[in-house]
C-alpha cells in the first residue's frame, strides 16, 4: 500500500493497494478498512471509518496484483494521540481471507492531525 503519512481532519485520503505474492485462486475474500485503534495499557478498541469487502464472486473479475485506488474524506475525530496510558492510531488495513482458513493482514499507519505529546 502507498499513501501520504500526515493528514488533517477533512482532508481527502487517497491510497492504492495491490496483492502480490499470493495466488489469486487461494484468496476467498478481501477487506479494506480505514480505521483507528487504541494501544496502551487498556483493552484495544477500534473504530472503522471506511470499510469495503470484496467477496469471492467479485474477486474473479479483478486482477488482485494490479493497484486499486480508494479515497475517502477523513473525519474530525478522533485525532491521532500519543499519551502515557493511551495511544490513538489511524491506519489503512488490508485483510485477506484465504480458502484454507488462514488470514493475512497488512497495516499502513498514518497520522491524523498534528497534536504533539506535549499538550
Amino acid at each position: 500500500m502507498s499513501l501520504q503519512a500526515g493528514l488533517e481532519p477533512g482532508e481527502s485520503l487517497e491510497f492504492e493497494y495491490a496483492v502480490q505474492c499470493v495466488a489469486p485462486e487461494l484468496v476467498d475474500s478481501l477487506e479494506v478498512s480505514v480505521m483507528w485503534y487504541t494501544e496502551g495499557k487498556g483493552g484495544e478498541d477500534i473504530g472503522v471509518h471506511l470499510f469495503q469487502r470484496i467477496g469471492r464472486e467479485d474477486l474473479t473479475e479483478l486482477a488482485l496484483d494490479q493497484p486499486r485506488r480508494l479515497s475517502c474524506d477523513l473525519p474530525a475525530s478522533p485525532l491521532s494521540f500519543e499519551g502515557r496510558l493511551l495511544k490513538i492510531r489511524w491506519c489503512v488495513r488490508l485483510r485477506l481471507f484465504l480458502r484454507d482458513g488462514r488470514e493475512l493482514s497488512a497495516d499502513k499507519p498514518f497520522y491524523l492531525g498534528h497534536l504533539t505529546t506535549d499538550l
Binding site: 496502551g40 484495544e44 478498541d45 473504530g47 499519551g83 497534536l115 504533539t116 499538550l119
Partner: peptide, 14 residues
C-alpha cells in the same frame, strides 16, 4: 487551538 478533544470508547477515555 492545538489540544486533544474528549474521547470515549469501550476501554479507554480522554
Amino acid at each position: 487551538l492545538d489540544m486533544m478533544h474528549s474521547f470515549q470508547s469501550s476501554h479507554n477515555a480522554i
